[in-house]
Amino acid sequence: MKVTVKLFATLKKDYFESREFDCADGTTVRSLLDSSGIKDREYHITFVNGRHADRNEKLKDGDTLSVFPAVGGG
């Protein structure tokens, strides 16, 4: 199945802005990002198709996964 990963803020500078991945059924948010080389501690919040999703959520063909780092200044 194909899943598009979009990275935001500092992540897109450090890795890539948008990329399509071919992944196996059952791939989760966490496993896809792990295999993309994005470390668990580098991202803070994930959305699938614009809706908040946790890291254990299973992805489906055609999903768009949006990934954000922590932003905590003030």
Partner: peptide, 29 residues
Amino acid sequence: GGILRFYGQTLTYVPGSACYRCLFQTLPP
């Protein structure tokens, strides 16, 4: 509200809506 570099995020809580911790369960390491 949270900001860093060129980026910012904001969320409003009222009783019954998602809170900050609904999205960010724990502090970043």
